[in-house]
Write a protein that binds this DNA or RNA. Structure first.
Lengths: 189, 189
DNA sequence: TTTTAATGTAATTCG
DNA sequence: CGAATTACATTAAT
């Protein structure tokens, strides 16, 4: 019997009591506690080497308009009337790109990769033959297409999901059609 | 044999492949072959008395292709004519393995469990104290959280993997930062 | 709005 | 058990 779980039960009920589990249950299982998981989301694309003055606070800066108007957060609702203020009008392409990177940083998401048509075609061709390319193939593709291996792997994952989805859908449609057909026959008889 | 990437590349570019992937590579011959005799994976959640959908997914072995999934995707560009033969002749062991895997998923992958926030909270709290809970603790948790013990075990496994991953990453970042710092010092001297 | 790259994590497999 | 990989549900960029 582990009486220690009662602590857990308490936590369930919203009691943030100090987690004191009975020693017995932890006995012999004393682990090196990394109490601050620190959960680094792993964002290698936010390269720390890019600038020598690689200050962390650099990315916490909230972009704003030159005139002090705060930058429209993409998640927010569009501002109907202020169309004339669209930030595109204020920044060059490269400036927008860097702003975007900053946004991506504090939102913690890798900038969306835009595959070229050629890259997609090659990937599709490989997919047709083998939709589970091993690491060797992926690395090979990465070199040949000038992409990171991770992009390749993700691409295949998403591609498989897409295939499955389409399969599901067609199956559903078939089932529906059959259902309707049967129904019709019954009515006719 | 099956078309390889050279053909694929040619199809894409219309030029004599500068990209050449070896057949072995494409077919993933380097991958682990699991042509092992079919053993039953025991899937209690694949309830025999579930509804219509069950049989549909269970044995859709279409002669030409498992599950009716066509690899030259129906909506996609057709492959060269030679495709009309028995598929056994066209797919390597590893490809068949892939297909088999896919088949397996369709007929029996446990539905993804969505833990509630409370469940996760309790699990995290226990994890903080002991990330290798023995069977008794797991059973206890299972009862308290109304989950199967297996889910608990898997959760801890995945949680440990996650912790390890985060350690690796923070280590990497630290190393990188040190590297940059050293570089900077050298430049300054 | 639709498609799809990216994320987080539960589930599976193998050694 | 860990490591690697996968499916799958979501989020969000285009």
């Amino acid at each position: 019997m582990s009486p220690n779980l009662q602590e857990g039960a308490r936590l369930v009920e919203g009691k943030p009591s100090s987690t004191s589990f009975s020693i017995e249950s932890i006995l012999g299982l004393d682990q090196k506690k990394d109490d601050a998981p620190s959960m680094k989301p792993h964002r290698p694309w936010a390269d720390t080497c890019s600038s020598l003055g690689k200050d962390a606070n650099l990315r916490l800066h909230v972009p704003s308009f030159p005139n002090g108007i705060s930058f429209p957060h993409p998640g927010d609702h569009p501002m109907p009337e202020e169309r004339a203020m669209k930030y595109e009008n204020y920044f060059s392409a490269s400036e927008r790109a860097s702003l975007k990177r900053e946004l991506n940083w504090y939102r913690g998401r890798r900038p969306r990769t835009a595959f070229t048509q050629n890259q997609v075609e090659v990937l599709e061709n490989v997919f047709r033959v083998n939709c589970y390319p091993g690491i060797d193939i992926r690395e090979d593709l990465a070199r040949k297409l000038n992409l990171e291996e991770d992009r390749i792997q993700i691409w295949f994952q998403n591609r498989r999901a897409k295939l499955k989805r389409s399969h599901r859908e067609s199956q559903f449609l078939t089932a529906k059609k059959n259902f309707n057909t049967n129904l019709l026959e019954q009515i006719e008889n």
